[in-house]
Amino acid sequence: MTADAQVGTVDERREHAGGAPPEPLVAIRNLSKYYLRGDQVIPVLVDIDLDVPEGDFVALMGPSGSGKSTLLNLIAGIDKPSSGEIRIAGVDITQLSDADLALWRSANVGFIFQFYNLMPVLSAFGNVELPLQLTSLSRRERRDRVETALALVGLSDRATHLPNELSGGQQQRVAIARALITDPTLIVADEPTGDLDRTTAGEILGLLERLNRELDKTIIMVTHDPKAAEKAHRVVHLEKGVLVH
């Protein structure tokens, strides 16, 4: 199967539902995650229910170790739950095989990490282009897209720079361009400003806000910075693996 085949447009899904209110883009039901240490069960997420409608900008907050990253990773399809359901654009990703999940991620998720996670040997251009290497786009199409994305994050003049020739804020902007490049269903960001100073953090948050407002991107962002959370439409709190609304 291809990821694209599973992901219809919003309109299609609405039709399938026969006029009923549309299913939210992300629908999480009874989601739990445990770790086993010896014969001890360590609950990390307990019975989570969460809906994220399309176009939303959600901030996930909570103390350190409360399970924010774990929840975000599950939604992004890079971790597997112990039980429960995660439906994204109609697909229960917990049921996908590893290979299908990888394919699904490449088409549906844009990642933004706290430490940028750029490939040190690739230029800004090469890093942004990376997800497109998995597509059948021509070289020219890839170049056009990368140039557009770099322009959007204001780094057209830094295309040939290696990550270590860029500031933290610039690196994160490259990462944002990389997250956008495949036009994903969902953007996940884990503490995207955690490694940046106030001013730079503000710029990055402004950029995320624009993605949400102007490009209609659905964003789920983990943060423990209240200033960052202010930019979101909605704040969801986690405490010891439990959602507190």
Binding site: A76, I78, A102, R105, S106, F111, N117, P120, L130, L134
Partner: peptide, 14 residues
């Protein structure tokens, strides 16, 4: 390892 994990997160295979 972090780079390999990033590749995989982006959809590249094992």
């Amino acid at each position: 390892y972090a780079e390999y994990a990033t590749f995989k997160a982006l959809g590249f295979s094992n």
